[in-house]
Design a protein around this nucleic acid. Structure first.
Length: 423
RNA sequence: GUGACCGUAGUUCAGCGGUAGAGCGUCGCGUUGUGGUCGCGAAUGUCGCGGGUUCGAAUCCCGUCGGUCACCCCA
């Protein structure tokens, strides 16, 4: 039993799984880079009011899941529960929106939500996100969605579904909301659900209980009450998605937990993850910039769950990050050989050849075992005889072939061997 | 936050009232300087933590911490 334990609900990634985590994160970010999104590094805590204003006071995230505390100057600080608000704040504060639009940004890092932990639901969670600000072009909605889809697909994932809907805008949502509310008023609901209906009637639509769902079959749906502009926008988004061969499922009852979403809204869920199946989600947020004090610019973005995506890969039997991470492993026998290989190791690294050395002066047999487990395709063995002859033995692990190479040719020989293997 | 289940070597788990086991992994050996297979051997546990019941607790009870499942929520 160790004296200290990590805080409740916090995942840690250490070898060998940390390699998979890093690889997943890289795959999630790559499609955004390919589409011209630039990286933005933001603070992990912000003024509490930023989240209350943008995410929405009535949301669960703000009302009961935030890590909020007072700092030494008496300011109310909150550990970021999501990424979009901080990006908006930074864009406005640093006037990134005063140049060419849209502003396209991506970020990655930890977020914090004080929920009851579960497999895939963590108090410190990792996300990779993108935001495209300053354009309401539906092709941009489609681009963002396609980037998310490509991120998952590039990892080899297949057991996921893209859910898509439109949540309407400031014009058409309020009247729909009233319509839905009056429908829900006529239903037989328990106290907690009734309260939710009053707070956010949309939320009731995706209640998982059958007793509730049975009563909802005739509920009015937002997609049937969109204004003309929203209908055109949504139709257009879907047309672009078709052009890009992105498959989706219409999800007219989908609800998102953050209040700022408007129009296009989407979610990626994975079938093998149980209750915490959401691996990514996002949407358009046309009033958000103005609400944090900026110009009234529209925007769209998503957050992809790095932790859950890794879990999804594991559930599908995928092994991200399992490629060998070394090119060569160096095995010295005796002090003279050790000095030569310590020097060689540094030279190889400077030449871009990834390598490790058998430390601890263990026997050749044990050192070879370590070499095998390192995954390095090449092993360099040097003992007294080789030092004497100014050569090294270079063994190709996959075939067992071993050749003697003159010491001055070694770096070139190894570099070429690796290059040949890669092509 | 609500309800339920679980917590034993590095790891996966068995043991379920009489003073702790297996597979995998780790390390060593199978003669002098070569891994992966095979054979042989070894090391490692305050049985999550605290209290209680008992002659005796990893085993029963309570609390606590942590994890997991569902709800809720969402990445």
């Amino acid at each position: 039993m160790t004296a200290f334990t990590a805080p409740k609900g916090v995942p840690e990634y250490f070898p060998p799984r940390s390699r998979a985590f890093v690889d997943v994160r890289a795959h999630l970010a790559r499609p955004a880079e390919l589409a011209g999104y630039a990286y933005i590094e933001l603070p992990v805590f912000e003024d509490t009011a930023l989240y209350v204003r943008s995410v929405g006071e009535s949301t669960d995230v703000v009302s009961k899941e935030m890590y909020t505390f007072e700092d030494r100057g008496g300011r109310s600080i909150t550990l970021r529960p999501e990424g979009t608000a901080g990006v908006m704040r930074s864009v406005v504060e640093n006037r990134l929106d005063k140049g060419q639009l849209p502003v396209k940004l991506w970020y990655a890092g930890p977020f914090f939500r004080a929920e009851r932990p579960q497999h895939g639901r963590y108090r410190q969670l990792q996300q990779v996100g993108v935001e495209a600000i300053g354009s309401d072009d539906p092709a941009l909605d489609a681009e963002v969605i396609a980037i998310g889809d490509e991120a998952f697909r590039s990892l080899g994932l297949t057991e996921y579904t893209l859910h898509l809907t439109s949540l309407g805008c400031a014009e058409c949502r309020p009247p729909y909301r009233i319509l839905l509310q009056s429908f829900l008023d006529g239903l037989d609901l328990d106290e907690a659900t009734r309260e939710r209906a009053a707070m956010n009637p949309l939320r009731v639509l995706d209640d998982k209980r059958e007793s509730v769902q049975a009563q909802l079959t005739d509920a009015p749906l937002m997609v049937n009450h969109l204004c003309d502009a929203c209908t055109r926008h949504y139709d257009s988004v879907r047309e672009y998605l078709r052009i890009m061969n992105v498959a989706w499922v219409e999800a007219p009852r989908m609800v998102r937990g953050l209040d700022y979403y408007t129009r296009t809204t989407f979610e990626f869920t994975h079938h093998l993850l149980g209750a915490q199946s959401g691996i990514g989600g996002g949407g358009r947020y046309d009033g958000l910039m103005a609400s944090v004090g900026g110009d009234d610019l529209s925007g769209i973005g998503f957050g992809l769950g790095t932790d859950r995506t890794l879990l999804a890969c594991e559930a599908e039997g995928l092994t991200p990050g399992s490629e060998p991470h070394l090119d060569a492993f160096l095995v010295p026998i005796g002090a003279a050989a050790k000095s030569k290989l310590v020097s060689l190791s540094a030279q190889l690294r400077a030449a871009g050849v990834r390598n490790d050395l058998a430390y601890g002066d263990r026997g050749l047999k044990g050192a070879m075992k370590a070499a095998d487990r390192s995954g390095a395709p090449l092993v360099v063995v040097v003992g007294d005889a080789e030092v004497e002859a100014d050569v090294a033995q270079v063994k190709t692990m996959s075939t067992g072939d071993q050749v003697t190479v003159a010491w001055p040719d070694l770096i070139t020989f190894i570099s070429l061997a690796i290059e040949r293997d890669l092509t």
